[in-house]
Amino acid sequence: MTMGREPHIIVRDLTMAYGSYVLQRDLSFTVNRGDIFIIMGGSGCGKSTLLRHLIGLKAPARGSVLYGNVNFWEAEPEERDRMMRRFGVMYQSGALWSSLTLAENVALSLELYTALKPAQIREIASLKLAMVGLAGFEDYYPSEISGGMKKRAGIARAMALDPEILFFDEPSAGLDPVSARLLDDLILELKESLGTTVVVVTHELASIFAIGNNSVFIDPAEKTMIATGHPQRLLEECGHPTVRNFLTRGEAKAEVKPGEKPAPCFLA
């Protein structure tokens, strides 16, 4: 990790709750510029909810999310809108706007936030679609294409405004191994060529080891994070049974004994 370790997203003492039900507490971690940061953990531990806190869809019960040095949830609404325009999000199901064609999906934010002419916008939309391997599908509606194509179109839309940060919610869920691999390669390619910071919510081990260079592991049992660091190093060095079990696909057969509280491992 020789790249500049300039913090891009800083999460401090974040507590997530639905009403009085606390999902996770005291999450603190930093995503550096140019990282591919993985949010991992078992099903139902609040990974996607954490993502919703990061992208401004749900306010934290306590704690803060900083972009650069601006506290997102304390910023003015206009400032927040401006910040949101600087990141792109790919949702689990693609979440393409079903009444618009793929080109229109990509073009919408360009229409709203740039002074480009329609012809130029159309060109950029075609380019973005071509970058994710969907050249020629400009005039298809989301209902006419497959799940994997929807995800890729979702990435094209997320990239429309050349964002500084890209968020992915379960990018490889529901894809065949080859498509999942292609998607991983695409994410790596984007990071390498554009220097984009990438945050990925996933529990696909293959993807985690292939692309991640930093991560946070959140645990539903302890309701907080129990590990941070490079996934490969976590696999080698982390002694927490839950993390070991997760990263080895259960091979480690490590178990948390009742009443015992293993030490978390936060690798610098």
């Binding site: 869809l57 979440a95 393409l96 706007w97």
Partner: peptide, 17 residues
């Protein structure tokens, strides 16, 4: 409602719309 289920409304919000 279907757009809500499909996360399309979330997508609008994060696009700043």
């Amino acid at each position: 409602g279907t757009m809500q289920v499909n996360e399309e409304i979330d997508a609008l919000q994060t696009t700043g719309v």
